[in-house]
Each structure stands twice: as structure tokens, then as C-alpha cells.
Design a protein around this nucleic acid. Structure first.
Lengths: 203, 203
DNA sequence: CGAAAGATGTCAGTGTGTGACACGATAGAC
DNA sequence: GTCTATCGTGTCACACACTGACATCTTTCG
């Protein structure tokens, strides 16, 4: 594809860049689509032709994470085995993403502006849906298991990210891999025996 | 408090009832605040004086769950012990809630209209924030642990709820307690040994 | 009773998001 | 290289979700 595809990619980038700048300057709420359009030099209408909403312009979505996770071909047949594989891929991608400039900028925003966490979790819904659907379709997992695995992977990613963002803003230059591992480790510690808790208690 | 408080409670109920009806009839997107107002017989402006948004009118929030969980005084000092206590309380509340009429109606909507799941998870953000904040404030848990516990409790509730809703819509009349227990059990099975997975893999 | 506080409707305004149309630019056929 | 279908863009009109301000009526409480 020639000029057209090229132009489209550039526009997507320009709009995202402008949005990111404005949100850093004024916050998400205070930034209007009109301002974004003006900064890029296009009409408001055109912004919506590239991104479905302000939020999408800011954070086009975990498409990379979705693609990576839904294309994992696990050799395991148990839920915990598949989870391990997915976490391993997430771990690698996390270490890579964390080096990207925009990822860090969004991390900062996530800690500074609580509204941003809403946007992140919102986008992650798509990941949970896509991943659990994939797992059910081609795996030996039941719907409940697939959903649990997808939610755990997503939550792990988000919490590791959030922790990283918090530490970094506090001035600590931490190792992303170590932080991801610690998140997974602590998560595992929540289930020491695999027993069902609370069965004896009622309301 | 006399007439005023009484009237306020009634208005809250009436608006919620009207919203629920309309969303059942037409879906969330298709239902406008104007319609809600008209059905109750009040002005559009007044609807917003009772609920911050259409979504809040439909589902005033897991306030019950938030209150119940943030007031749990656990005797345990480890993350997994506290998690057990919180899950036990959730379990009891789940069994109770599931008997409520509106809870079932919302359950049905959750399965039928995918947009609804967005609303639910949205509302649950407040729960995660409130719960993790409480755990950090008065518990021996580090921020990361508190966040993990809060996310796990929330996800468990949501998944159990979702499973229940799915089964019920499929015609299966299932035992909510058993379903909640199964969700917790499967979750525990995802972490059989507590080892850190994937440490050897990179991207 | 009378004054302060609260609830409601109306009105005007901002911001998001969508459909329709016209116009200019590009791509591929010839 | 022209010609035509397709695509990108701006403009306009519109629907809907909210918000602030004001006037009016009602409840509360001294």
C-alpha cells in the first residue's frame, strides 16, 4: 500500500501524540476532542474517524498483548499449565513494553490521575473476552476455567504495571522482570494449599 | 428524619425500577435518561440529582459488598489468611444477594447485553480501591499484597456471578453456594505449588 | 408563624459521538 | 495519461449525557 496507508499510520500517531501531550498537561477530563483536533490541525470529526473515543486515542489498547496471548500455543492441557505459559509470555512482553517511551508516559499518568486506571481496566475487558474465548475454543478448558485464567493473566499484568508505575514515580528504578515475578509469586502465595476456604462460614 | 428522607428513598427506588424496566425492554444504549424521567414523571434534571449517571441508576453499586468487605476484621496476619476470611464473607453475601429479585434481573442483563459487563466491572473498581486501601491501612499487608487480595476477591465475585447468570439463563437451576465454592476451588488449582512460573522464558 | 434549608423544573450551555452530504485526492483500469 | 470508483476530509445538523444557575415551591425547625 502506498501513500494512503502511510498517511493513515502517520495520522494515528499524530493524534495519539497530541492526546498524550494534552492529557499530560491538563488531565483527561479537561482535555476536549476539539483541542486534540486543533493541535493536530484537523477537524473534530476526523479525530473520530481514527479513534472511537478520546480514551482510545490516548491508549489504542493492549492490541499487542491481546495478539501475543491469543496466539500462544500451549502444550499443556491443565489450566495451571496453560496459565504458566501465558504468564511467561506476558512477562516477556512486559519487559519489552516497559522500555517503550509511550508506555512509560502512560504509566505516569496512571498513577497521577485515578481516572486513567478506569481507562486501562476498560480496555482490558477486551483482552479478557478475547483470551477466554480463545482458550475455550481451542483448549481443553471449561468456560469457568478459561475465564479464571484470562482474568488472572489480565489482573497480573495490570497489577505488575501499576506497581511498576508507582515505584518509578516514587523515584525507585526497579527491574520490571523482578517486579513481575514478585507479583506472580505473591499471587501464588495466596493459595498455599489449594483448599477451598470459607466453606464453613455463612451469612 | 421524616417525609424528606422517606421521599428520597422512594425516588431512588422508583428511578431504579424505571431504569431497570427500560433497559430490559430496549437495552442500555437505547435507553435515554429522558425516557427514564418521563416514566417516573419527573424532569431529566432531577434524575441526575439522584444518580450520577444512567449506569448508576441501573446498578447503584456494590455498596453492600463494599461495606461488608471493608468491615471484615480478620484475625489472620498473612495475605492468604485474610483472603480466606474475605472470601468467606463474599460467599455468604453472594448466597444472600442471589435471592434478591433485582440481582437476578441484573444477572440476566449481564449475560444478554455485553455492555452490561462493562458497567459491572466499572462499578467494581470502587470496590478494589476501597478494599485495598482498607487492607493497607489496618493490615500487616504491603501495598502489592493488598492490591492482589482485593483484585482476587473482586474477580472471584464477578466470575461466580457471571457463571451463575450464564447457567441460570441456560435453564440450569444451580446452587449459588456450590458455584461460588467451585470458582474458588478452580482458582486455587491454578496455583498448585506456589512456584514462580515462566522465569526461564523471555521475549 | 416565619425564616432557613431542601427539592424541583426550566433554561442555557458544554462536550461526546454519529449520520449525511459535498468536495477534493488517490488508485487502478484502459 | 485520462477516467472512474474509492477513499479521506470538512461542514453541518443532530441526539444524548451531563452541569450550573435561577426561580419557585415545600418542608423543617426555632
Amino acid at each position: 500500500m502506498g501513500i494512503r496507508e502511510e498517511h493513515r499510520v502517520r495520522m494515528l500517531q499524530e493524534i495519539q501524540r497530541a492526546t498524550l501531550e494534552l492529557v499530560e498537561e491538563q488531565g483527561l477530563e479537561a482535555t476536549t476532542v476539539g483541542e486534540i483536533a486543533r493541535r493536530v490541525g484537523i477537524s473534530e470529526r476526523t479525530v473520530f474517524r481514527y479513534y472511537a473515543s478520546k480514551e482510545h486515542a490516548l491508549m489504542p489498547g493492549q492490541q499487542g498483548l491481546i495478539d501475543a496471548l491469543t496466539s500462544v500455543e500451549s502444550t499443556h492441557v491443565t489450566a495451571d499449565g496453560i496459565l504458566d505459559d501465558l504468564l511467561a509470555v506476558s512477562r516477556g512482553l512486559f519487559a519489552y513494553e516497559v522500555e517503550q517511551r509511550d508506555f512509560r508516559r502512560i504509566s505516569r499518568l496512571m498513577v497521577q490521575q485515578p481516572e486513567m486506571l478506569r481507562v486501562v481496566t476498560q480496555q482490558e475487558r477486551r483482552l479478557v473476552e478475547a483470551l477466554s474465548a480463545t482458550l475455550v475454543r481451542r483448549g481443553p478448558l471449561r468456560a469457568l476455567q478459561a475465564l479464571l485464567v484470562a482474568e488472572v493473566v489480565t489482573a497480573t499484568w495490570r497489577i505488575a504495571w501499576q506497581s511498576f508505575a508507582t515505584e518509578e514515580l516514587a523515584g525507585v528504578e526497579s527491574d520490571p522482570l523482578a517486579l513481575f515475578d514478585e507479583t506472580v509469586r505473591e499471587l501464588g502465595r495466596l493459595f498455599p494449599t489449594g483448599q477451598t476456604p470459607g466453606s464453613a462460614v455463612a451469612e
